[in-house]
Simulated assay, not measured.
Amino acid sequence: MDRRRAIRGRGITKCFGEVVALDGVDLDVARGQIHGLVGPNGAGKTTLLGLLLGLAVADKGRLEILGTAVGRGPAAVDGVAGFVDGPGLYPSLTARQNLAALAALYGRDAKTMPIDEALDQVGLTDVADDRAGGFSLGMRQRLGLAAALLTRPRLLVLDEPSNGLDPAGKQHVHGVLTGLASNGTSVVLSSHRMDDLEALCSEVTILNTGRVVFSGPLSKLAAEHRELDYRLVTSDPAQARRLAGETAGIVVKEQPGSEHLVVRALVPALDALVVRLVQGGVALRELAPVVSPLEAAFLALTEQPEAGA
């Protein structure tokens, strides 16, 4: 067993009747890593998260979690916490009472559990005595995260943790997750928010129809991917267009009436264009992918139509 990895899965297969939800999936997550799980609806993400949480078992393959080989009966490995398909809460109970009820399910006295610490960690101290039934979606997500943190897990498994969060709430949750990872907790999170995954994750696994179509660092994904469209805003659009047209490997995309320029290129050609702009006295005010590298790769690898296509 590899003690350096929080998760090691090989050939994981799970079927529901004739439906193959996971088909020979390999998964590696290092300790202290935030690992993203990406894929279209029906790709197998929820099934895989359920296996990690001990809610189901694989039909075939090997799975080790926190150095423990997972057996053939549903059972959560000690040190794992999280939620899938949204956190389960008691709407008639307050936030604090929900966590106390969870402590009771663990067979623990609520007084010995870090309930107030967990509420403070997710920014819910001010509403700790409000009923969860009146919480917004984002507040329920944060309470679910507090419930997962109650046992101080070594592996945190989260399904769409940013659902319903406003910008401040999202920033707060991001801070919690990065702080946990820096202290050695591994995090696996599924999300349709590519900006969240790019901000948080060092590695991602992309699933499509139950199979892994990519797994590895985001930097490798961007480097291996096809050309991207980039938006350029400069001090001299006409001169920038002329220089772009003269640079090898750059394709200028027509944007009638627009003051900005959109080009399609690989990174080396884009670098060459930036050098030419600077040498030509053209100030570069903005340079960004029209679609993020992760989103572009996701669309290409899962054969999803790009926006506007």
Rank of each mutant, 00 (worst) to 15 (best):
R226K: 14
E295R: 05
A146Q: 03
Y106H: 14
Q97P: 07
L27I: 13
G133I: 10
L137V: 15
L177Q: 05
F214A: 06
L124H: 12
V233P: 04
V204P: 01
Q33W: 00
L27K: 06
V275P: 05
D130S: 14
G175V: 05
G164V: 12
V278G: 01
E198Y: 14
A118V: 00
L52G: 01
A30C: 06
G36V: 00
A307T: 14
N41K: 02
V278I: 14
D130E: 14
A69W: 06
A132K: 02
S162E: 13
G67S: 04
A30K: 00
I115W: 05
Q171R: 15
L218G: 01
H192G: 10
D85Q: 13
L228Q: 06
A30G: 10
G32E: 05
L137P: 11
R242N: 03
Q304I: 10
E18W: 07
L52A: 00
E254G: 03
L102W: 11
D116N: 09
A104Q: 13
R154E: 15
Y90G: 07
K111G: 15
V291D: 04
S182H: 07
A104L: 13
A300M: 04
E224K: 03
G32A: 08
A147E: 05
L150H: 03
A307I: 12
L49T: 07
D271T: 11
A58G: 11
E198K: 14
A76Y: 06
D159R: 07
V127Y: 06
E198M: 13
T47C: 03
R8H: 14
L102M: 14
S92P: 09
R140Y: 13
R231G: 02
E224Y: 03
Q304W: 12
R4V: 06
A95S: 02
A244V: 08
A56E: 14
G281M: 05
V291T: 10
L93R: 09
P74L: 06
E259W: 01
A30W: 07
V275L: 12
I115E: 02
A309G: 11
A128Q: 10
R108W: 08
S162H: 12
G257K: 03
D120V: 09
A118W: 00
R276G: 06
S258N: 12
A283H: 06
N41D: 12
L180C: 10
Y230G: 06
E227R: 15
A6T: 05
A103G: 07
R264I: 09
L218N: 03
R211Q: 13
D196N: 10
P217V: 04
G257D: 08
G67V: 03
L207F: 07
V213Y: 01
A118L: 02
K253D: 14
A240D: 09
T94R: 03
S202N: 00
M1H: 12
E227L: 11
H260L: 12
L218T: 01
A265Q: 09
E303V: 05
S215C: 10
V291Y: 00
Q141Y: 00
L189A: 05
L284E: 03
T125H: 09
H192P: 08
G44S: 08
G39R: 07
G245E: 10
G79W: 15
L93Y: 10
P289W: 00
L119N: 11
G245C: 07
D229E: 13
V157Y: 01
G281C: 04
L102F: 15
R3K: 12
L180S: 08
M194A: 05
A297V: 00
V127G: 03
Q279N: 12
S215I: 09
R131C: 11
